[in-house]
Amino acid sequence: MGVHMKKIELVCPAGNLPSLKAAIDNGADVVYTGFNDATNARNFEGLNFTHGELKEGISYAIRSGKKVYLAVNTFPQMDSYHQWRRSVDSAVGLGADALILAELGVLRYAREKYPDINIHLSVQASASNYESIDFYRRHFGIKRVVLPRVLTVEEMELLGERTDVETEVFALGGLCINIEGRCYLSSFVTGASTNTEGACSPSRFVQFANEGGHLRITLNGLLLNDLGPGEVSPYPTCCKGRYIRPDGEIAYAFEEPESLNILEMLPDVIGAGVDALKIEGRQRTKAYVGTVTRILRDAIDSYYRDPQRYIARDEWLAGTNATFEGSRPTLGCYLEK
């Protein structure tokens, strides 16, 4: 496994200015953001940036020699398109270093109007092979693709050998077990389109009810989980719910409560030629952002100092796993499907 000359880029999440500063102060190369509306895929109440806040955030990044990316990665419907164009215009006007886009019309608009900007293909576009990536490169000149979490590290490496487009992969944090940009579970239950509105399992549909020591969690009236004493659940979404299978077994039929943590596989991921590592969690606190950024920074630096002797330190694993809200660490499909 060769050591790559160019150091892997660390891309960290921020849902507000304090998180952005925490990421930069703790070793992020790049912070990724979104505007506080439906044009990004983490559209939660009280989260994300106004025009003025992004301006301040970009200034802070520039002063520290770091970069800011902005996601406009949802799927507009009907006559709401102007809002997505405005997000693109604002981000370019403020000098974001790259736009993270997913939707064909938005990609076309951004590329035609701004021939020189850096466009990254969002994970929401679910481009999981080099032919799809080449399609987006030919038509929109994408510089980078954020790979969907459906590839093993071996597949990432083979993909990377067949494209000049940079690749970015998720390293830490919450995990969509289903392919993003193509998941209608939340929409099926609530009627609010995750792809268009930018929020899965919006909080206005979630209810917690205490009944005789049990915690019943519903989404738009549909029971997602019934927790007994001592049981915990991460933020309730359909994929993290418990269901009854035909044989009567009650199970987390899609996934156990778990979060991605690739610290132990870091040399493999870097060795696969990946260009950037992304931390999930624009909806999380600045304490989370600061903690996981610092740990991944240390891990990356430690790897480059002496690749052969890299080892995931116990305190890194304990530190990251402690941020996972009761869910356990997983390698997702990075090792095997």
Partner: peptide
Amino acid sequence: ITTYNVPAVKFLQGIGVKRVIFPVELSKES
């Protein structure tokens, strides 16, 4: 294929796509 809106349809028409099956979650109005 996530064909949600008019610009997406027009892009696909532009590369020669003749028919679209819309994503299942689109309403009648959309």
